[in-house]
């Protein structure tokens, strides 16, 4: 099977943040957005909800940035896996990530990076709007291109 990646479409997101709750519950057994690897940000003036997610970069800058060998790619899913023992919370990878998709655990000394839930991402499974999809890397650009054509990606411009 070809490697798959997460794809987010702001034009479809309505800001319910159900994805955040399932992410945190799946990984930690508790519900709280600060423990979620996916984050939805609502920009109130433009009324746009956008998702901050790991894009599973083909050549991951987070791995390259880590000086402690704490990050590695998981063979089958291609997800980034954090070695909790090696990670010391230096936050270099947070700055290296071009998508802003890495966060510190709010209480521990390690970072939270999407692990694709072992190939069955809970955010994708539970999004009521299909705003997050799990697609082959070679097909990942298609929803974004379609949205561009539909004009949804520039919706915010209607607010003068």
């Amino acid at each position: 099977m070809k490697e798959k990646v997460l794809v987010f479409e702001a034009g479809k997101c309505i800001g319910c943040r159900i994805c955040e709750q399932w992410c945190s519950l799946h990984h930690f057994g508790v519900a709280g957005p600060a423990l979620s690897r996916i984050t939805i940000v609502r920009d109130h003036p433009t009324q746009i909800d956008n998702g901050i997610i790991c894009h599973q970069c083909a050549d991951a800058p987070c791995i390259a940035s880590c000086k402690f060998g704490a990050l590695k790619r998981e063979e089958t899913s291609g997800a980034i896996i954090v070695d909790l023992e090696k990670c010391n919370g230096c936050r270099r990878c947070i700055r290296a990530c071009p998508h802003g998709a890495i966060r510190m655990h709010p209480e521990e000394k390690y970072v939270l990076i999407c692990d694709l839930c072992g190939g069955n991402p809970q955010c994708v499974r539970h999004c009521p709007e299909q705003a997050v999809q799990y697609l082959e890397r070679g097909k990942a650009e298609r929803p974004y291109r379609s949205a561009l054509v539909r004009g949804l990606a520039v919706r915010g411009e209607c607010d003068e």
Binding site: I14, G15, C16, R17, I18, Q21, T46, Q47, D49, P128, E129, R155, C158, D159, E160
Partner: peptide, 28 residues
């Protein structure tokens, strides 16, 4: 022009609306 949801709600009954007003500005 779009839908909006409150926290943890799969319904999304909120409606985002836009009109262009007579003075040429818009309300969103």
């Amino acid at each position: 022009v779009g839908d909006a949801s409150c926290f943890a709600c799969p319904v999304g009954c909120g409606k985002r609306s836009y009109v262009k007003t007579a003075d040429g500005t818009g309300i969103l």
